[in-house]
């Protein structure tokens, strides 16, 4: 990662989300738009993975980014920014899952309307991919989903993922093993003629 102190003239600004976040935390409001544009895809895909719901992920991403923005003022600079961000998003998604569960119990029998597909073939294809991913993730428990997302989709190290989720590495291994087993079962069940290696 380039340091902002060694910027070459004419080169695009090398600020990543972490640098922008620290600037925002220091009160530089001008970085808000750029920070948001860089962080939205990351936060949104985390929400998608944790919630297994595209429409929910859009709302949750906005909420998570607002929460992150407000938390930046008190963010400990000694802490790794991505780990902090992922923890905030994971916590928010857990809250939302709990709320959704309560709502579901209250409104049992009322089907949730399907999200309207956006225009554009590419967008539609992406939505189909996402829907497939969400169907797979929906088989997992919230904790298994978190572990699977951080390890197999975000490709984080076990120790980092365990720290961000606030669990032991041994638990993380167990959850990951369960998640993979469930997904393998699903693939076996859906593959015509069984799973091909």
């Amino acid at each position: 990662m380039h340091s902002p102190h060694h910027r070459s003239p004419g080169a695009p600004p090398p600020e990543g989300p972490e640098v922008l976040a620290r600037a925002l935390g220091a009160g530089d409001e001008a970085q808000l738009g750029r920070w948001y544009a860089l962080e939205f895809p990351v936060v949104r895909r985390l929400c998608l993975g944790f919630l297994a719901d595209g429409a929910e992920a859009d709302d949750a991403a906005q909420e998570a980014l607002l929460r992150l923005r407000r938390g930046l003022a008190s963010f400990d600079p000694a802490r790794a920014y991505p780990a902090w961000r992922n923890s905030v998003v994971a916590n928010l998604c857990r809250d939302r899952l709990r709320q959704a569960e309560r709502r579901r119990r209250r409104e049992q029998g009322h089907a949730r309307p399907e999200a309207q597909p956006a225009a554009g073939a590419q967008r539609l294809e992406q939505q189909e991919f996402e829907a497939d991913l969400c169907r797979a993730l929906a088989l997992l428990s919230p904790r298994e989903r978190e572990v699977f997302v951080l390890i197999d989709l975000e490709e984080l190290e076990a120790a980092a993922a365990a720290e961000q989720l606030g669990i032991e590495t041994s638990s993380l291994r167990a959850y990951l093993s369960l998640a993979r087993a469930k997904l393998r079962e699903r693939l076996r069940a859906h593959a015509p003629g069984g799973l091909t290696p």
């Binding site: 544009a37 895809p41 895909r45 992406q126 991913l133």
Partner: peptide
């Protein structure tokens, strides 16, 4: 691919 293919805001 699906996970990372999400567009920006």
């Amino acid at each position: 691919r699906a996970y990372r293919g999400g567009a920006g805001p």
